[in-house]
Nucleic acid binder design. Structure first.
Lengths: 113, 113
DNA sequence: ACGAAAGTACGACCGCTGTCAAACTTCGAT
DNA sequence: ATCGAAGTTTGACAGCGGTCGTACTTTCGT
């Protein structure tokens, strides 16, 4: 079974959720920019295009961050026109690493008590 | 109030648990060696001295890892003779970042289903 | 008092990663 | 057909972080 949302050959394949390693996930989430992306997606009711996050880094750097998140199995990407959409693989992820994403998102939102 | 276990001036001060940042915690836990230390302490019923982990790195590297964990607020260190003991600051940590440590330890233990 | 045990401190090295600029691609609208 | 919008790719660069060896400190046991 495939885990790619749409069959758009412009997007490299998404990893099967069972091949995700904690190492990759932590390497992805240790970066503040990438963590902000995940947190935004966690709160969002709909998928968000790359340009819609208002990231403070250059386009090429943003592309890099999204790729790391995709390869870590955290987000799913697909094209709509010229926009690359990003969605959190929330439920799949929960099955493999229960509680992890929620704990990190919660921790990220509440830096001070 | 102080958070140092014993007043041994050989040990640098431990951070107050309220000053811990998620950034520091993730930077600490992204390293496999340090994660193995935390997992061992999570499972252990008693504190463990630095040499008791059987780390595959040199002594100076091990010292470095323990310092990162201490400064991130994850472990508490104190001397017993010439042995530096390490204990997980589990309950304090749970108050600040609920569910985080358990999620990571669980994820680390079950890489494959 | 002496030596071994357990770590620490200090530099040095090296690979990895986040960053950017510049050139390119692909699609949509005019 | 052309132009702009949205991202990607490539290459380069800089800084950080894990690693080690060596020298040092402190404590315990004899």
């Amino acid at each position: 079974m495939s885990y790619d949302g749409g069959m758009d050959d412009r997007i490299p394949p998404h990893p099967d959720v069972r091949t995700i390693t904690l190492q990759q996930v932590l390497e992805a989430l240790v970066d503040p920019v990438r963590r902000s992306i995940v947190t935004r997606l966690w709160d969002a009711s709909a998928d968000i295009r790359c340009g819609g996050f208002g990231l403070t880094v250059s386009n090429s750097t943003a592309t890099h961050h999204f790729r790391v998140l995709r390869e870590a199995g955290l987000i799913r990407q697909y094209y709509v026109g010229t926009s690359r959409m990003n969605g959190l693989r929330r439920d799949e992820f929960e099955e493999v690493f229960p509680g992890l994403l929620e704990a990190i998102v919660t921790a990220d939102r509440a830096p001070v008590g």
